[in-house]
């Protein structure tokens, strides 16, 4: 199998090293390993969760090759769709979930304040 290493981002002037890289095969796009720089369990474990929820994913896992290197490798194997697209969808889903968490949380805090203030007034006024 011919393997290749595709640099996804063109290094800009401001950034010395690229942030995301795909290590895959030239003939089979359905399985690839992605290297993300400056990321850790926070993002990798979350996206592993969203990817595992996707029925197109056969396997997904991540590893941090060395603890002193700020880098994670995410392995994605799919039923046929390009791994890169599936990974992008995984991040997209994660983002939508986050937005929902944020709005739900905001509403819950507002509800709590609305319910609490009348009770407080009762205590304040004898």
């Amino acid at each position: 199998m011919v393997s290749f290493c595709l640099q996804i981002s063109v290094p800009s002037e401001h950034r010395e090293k690229e942030f995301a890289m795909e290590h895959g095969s030239a003939t089979d796009s359905s399985s690839s390993t992605f290297s993300l720089m400056d990321e850790d369990h926070t993002l990798a474990n979350s996206v592993r969760y969203t990817l595992n929820q996707d029925p197109r994913v056969i396997f997904c896992g991540y590893s941090i090759p060395h603890p002193s290197e700020n880098k994670v490798n995410i392995r994605v194997q799919t039923t046929g769709d390009p791994a890169k697209d599936v990974l992008k969808d995984g991040f997209q889903n994660l983002m939508v979930m986050c937005q929902h968490v944020r709005s739900t949380f905001g509403k819950a805090v507002d509800d709590f304040r609305a319910n609490e203030s009348p009770e407080r007034m009762k205590i304040d006024t004898p």
Binding site: A20, L36, S46, Q92
Partner: peptide, 24 residues
């Protein structure tokens, strides 16, 4: 504390956004 949580969720969103834009 409630602002902190919202900021934290926003940061995770930003991380996702960054990877998506790097991948495309």
């Amino acid at each position: 504390p409630e602002e902190l949580f919202i900021e934290a969720v926003k940061i995770l969103e930003d991380k996702c956004d960054r990877v998506i834009s790097e991948l495309s």
